[in-house]
């Protein structure tokens, strides 16, 4: 359903001496994610997971490579010849390729995303945050509020509907981002460390909620996490990124049947192998070369 073909992303940054340097965030990442799969991306901090996720969503243009969602290309590839360059320039002279449309709200793809720092709008109330996204998806005015309240209820925020995000705790903001993304009932959801800010018990509850939702809707889930246990418990497949530049180091399939038990020894074994691998990478970071 989501297919990334040889995605590379380079940033040019200015170092402290004022000299421009190249920085490779992703290098030639190819990944194919089937419909209804749960995929987690694991890797050390700064290896380009968030960048990769935003490229999948079409929010950043990759330097090289293409992403397809249901066979539709997410962003036009960057030009490679002089003629292509001219045409590309002309076409995107006024609006960047990342923009949806000038005046019409219209998502390019039926996906939702939860950002690492949630990115809920502080100037909208909890309810408005959700109704706003529903409006973008073209829901009629009368249905928006109803649907928003249903999803806020699911994450336990219905009573805080009229508060502003600054009045919520970190975990509540997290759940708001969750409700906002799920309320549009997307085909796929991309999540960047969605459970990082909540305590262990809440986290486990949210994970099970997510699994229930996944079971009932068959949604495709791509998730970034640092928590190996969480990755093992949730995923069909775990993608391990190497330290920068971010490339795919290993793919682990987790073939343990669902519903899974958290204390299943088979899961523990996979978790142990992955942890060892990550630790090895960190210890040998300087020697590691591509």
């Amino acid at each position: 359903m989501i297919e990334a073909r040889r995605i590379s992303k380079f940033f040019s940054i200015v170092n402290k001496d004022g000299i421009a340097e190249g920085l490779t965030a992703c290098l030639s990442v190819s990944l194919s994610i089937g419909k209804g799969e749960i995929i987690t991306l694991l890797g050390p901090s700064g290896c380009g997971k968030s960048t990769f996720l935003e490229i999948l969503a079409g929010l950043q243009a990759p330097t090289e490579g293409e992403v397809y969602i249901d066979g539709v290309r997410v962003l036009e590839p960057l030009p490679s010849t002089r003629n292509e360059m001219e045409e590309y320039r002309k076409k995107y002279r006024f609006l960047s390729p990342l923009a949806n449309d000038l005046i019409r709200d219209r998502p390019k793809h039926d996906i939702a995303m939860i950002f690492q720092d949630y990115a809920v709008f502080p100037w909208m109330t909890v309810l408005q945050n959700v109704t706003f996204t529903l409006k973008l998806r073209g829901l009629a005015h009368v249905e928006r509020e109803k649907q928003a309240l249903i999803y806020l209820g699911k994450v336990g925020l219905a009573s805080s509907a009229n508060k502003y995000p600054s009045q919520l705790s970190g975990g509540m903001r997290q759940r708001l981002a969750f409700a906002r993304a799920l309320s549009v009932e997307p085909k796929a959801i991309l999540m960047d460390e969605p459970f990082a800010a909540v305590d262990l018990l809440t986290r486990e509850r949210l994970q099970d909620d997510l699994l229930n939702l996944w079971k009932s809707s068959g949604i495709t889930i791509v998730m970034v996490t640092h928590d190996v246990a969480e990755a093992v418990y949730l995923s069909d497949e775990i993608v391990i990124f190497s330290p920068s530049p971010g490339t795919i180091r290993n793919l682990f399939r987790v073939d343990v049947p669902r519903p899974r038990r958290r204390d299943d020894p088979a899961l523990a074994e996979i978790q142990e192998r992955i942890s060892r691998l990550l630790k090895y990478d960190l210890d040998n970071e300087s020697e590691y070369s591509i």
Binding site: E54, A57, G58, L59, L95, L98, A99, N100, D101, L102, I103, R104, D105, R106, P107, K108, I111, A112, M113, F115, D117, A119, V120, F121, F132, T133, L136, R137, G138, V184
Partner: peptide, 19 residues
């Protein structure tokens, strides 16, 4: 991030400006 999070749900440029 605010722009991205509105864009991913389909916001047009006009909506981005106004909201």
């Amino acid at each position: 991030r605010y722009l991205s999070s509105a864009r991913v749900f389909g916001a047009s440029e006009l909506t981005l400006i106004l909201r």
